[in-house]
Write a protein that binds this DNA or RNA. Structure first.
Length: 443
RNA sequence: GACCCUUUCGUCUAACGGUUAGGACACGUCCCUUUCACGGAUGUAAUACGAGUUCGAUUCUCGUAGGGGUCGCCA
């Protein structure tokens, strides 16, 4: 029997990293075993469902590279894949339970399932045998007075109908599984294989909520993370290749995606490490892809950054790229490259003020730069060297002043390539203006 | 509170019952360097506690404590 797994989100909120990892693990398990991955939308709670949430989930999964073999916009032999459209199926299964005497109706019309009240042993692929004592548990409600069905019931019915063989879900479902096993038995169907994976928590150990930074997959999309990187990092939470590798492709993960490589304890989400993983992937990206990623991010910004519409942008990106770990850091570099009127930063002012003979140095430097035969990094370096020789100082001493004249900042991209990129006609006025401002204030 | 899962550096994790308990993120120091990063080197840092089994326990067993989860006519 071939493997069939599913991810069954409820479209009541954004796609959470915990949910995304559950989806990812199911997907990996399916792909590792040549199985089928089903996406099923559990939208039985009409009051809480939103179209936006469903779009975010579908979009987030696709972004992460998690594709489904059966599900929304794809269909398949067990369509529809929205629980809201499967009422007739639930009615039929409900009748079976009624006829077999497994149910009773409350005064208000709600229907409960008569639990056998036994002690169950749940053979879990990750936790081992889990004892679940159902003897003192109240009977679960499976249908509301208005005729709509409860999660436990529809979840099991669909898993039966869709021939799900393995259920991989969070540990928070362990006790639900006890209820679900009872339903499977009432239907005379063998329950699927269960694997309850540990949860993902905040760094402080609390449960991740929507408000926490990085809790929603949408955050990584907005911040222009690479989906492969996020997926890679998610895999490292609750799974390990059992060696020292941390950057792994899906192809490398698949043969190692086995129960014995799964972790047993909850993991705290470390956004810093996720950023580091992303930086590893970013560094390996080819230039066109990097540029595309960067430009797409720039165009998404509600407050346009300097350079966004500038034809020189593509020329500036290779200067910035080696300096940043994430695309949003463009916001720190673009203003100093594209905004020639940007004020001189305070720390730059004070650092230069400490330099002796500043006015003379700047003037000498400018004179030599103006005389550079071509505005290229090598000629500019020669000009700097000559200026330094005239002043009787080391060339290095002129670099910080020149940097400040160029960008107004004490840090940034490699200076000479940046000047070359700016071009003589753009650079010189900038240098002169800032030099004038500096000498005016220091005098 | 009851029940269930769980426990190795701050974090993610390795370690046939025998290792100087390894790697990575973060942090510190040094090197490289015109700045910032990158890179290289290096340092600080962990087996929750108590019993038991064993020649020997991070590893197996039990207990305690901590963390998390679940106790819905939510999913």
């Amino acid at each position: 029997m071939s493997v069939r797994v599913r991810f069954a989100p409820s479209p009541t909120g954004y796609l959470h990293v915990g949910g995304a990892r559950t989806a990812l693990f199911n997907w990996l398990y399916a792909r590792a075993h040549g199985g089928t991955f089903v996406l099923r939308i559990e939208d039985t709670d009409e009051a809480r469902n939103t179209a936006a949430a469903q779009a975010a989930i579908v979009d987030g999964l696709r972004w992460l590279g998690i594709d489904w073999d059966e599900g929304p916009e794809k269909d398949g032999p067990h369509a529809p894949y929205y629980q809201s459209q499967r009422g007739a199926i639930y009615d039929a299964y409900f009748q079976k339970l009624v006829e077999a005497g497994h149910t009773y109706t409350e005064e208000n019309g709600a229907v409960r399932f008569r639990s056998p009240k036994e002690i169950l042993i749940l053979p879990d692929k990750i936790c081992g045998d889990i004892k679940i004592d159902r003897t003192a548990e109240p009977d679960m409600t499976i249908r509301r007075p208005d005729g709509s069905y409860i999660f436990h019931f529809v979840n099991v019915v669909d898993d039966i109908e869709m021939e799900i063989t393995h259920v991989i879900r969070g540990e928070d479902h362990i006790f639900n599984t006890g209820k679900h096993i009872e339903l499977f038995q009432a239907f005379g169907v063998d329950p699927p294989v269960y694997a309850h994976i540990p949860l993902i928590l905040n760094v402080d150990g609390s449960k991740m909520s929507k408000r926490d930074q990085g809790a929603a997959v949408g955050y990584y999309q907005e911040q222009a993370f690479l989906p492969e990187a996020v997926s890679n990092y998610l895999c490292l939470l609750g799974w390990s290749p059992k060696d020292d590798r941390e950057i792994l492709t899906v192809e490398e993960i698949l043969p190692l995606f086995r129960w014995e490589n799964m972790g047993h304890s909850n993991a705290k989400f470390d956004l810093e490490k996720c950023r580091w993983v992303n930086a590893q992937y970013l560094a390996k990206l080819d230039t066109p892809s990097f540029d595309h990623l960067a430009i797409a991010w720039l165009l998404r910004q509600t407050e346009p950054l300097p350079g966004t519409d500038d034809p020189r942008l593509v020329g500036a990106l290779p200067l910035i790229r080696p300096k940043i770990k994430g695309i949003p850091e463009l916001a720190e570099h673009l203003p100093m490259l594209f905004d020639g009127n940007a004020p001189i930063a305070e720390d730059a002012q004070s650092k230069l003020a400490a330099q002796p003979d500043l006015g003379n140095r700047l003037a000498t430097l400018l004179t030599h730069l103006e005389e550079a035969p071509t505005w290229t990094a090598s000629d500019l370096q020669s000009a700097i060297n000559a200026a330094a020789a005239t002043l009787g100082i080391k060339p290095g001493a002129l670099m910080l002043p020149l940097r400040v004249l160029t960008t107004g900042q004490t840090h940034g991209v490699d200076l000479l390539p940046a000047l070359e990129w700016l071009g003589r006609s753009e650079a010189l006025p900038r240098l002169r203006a800032r030099a004038a401002a500096l000498t005016a204030t220091s005098a």
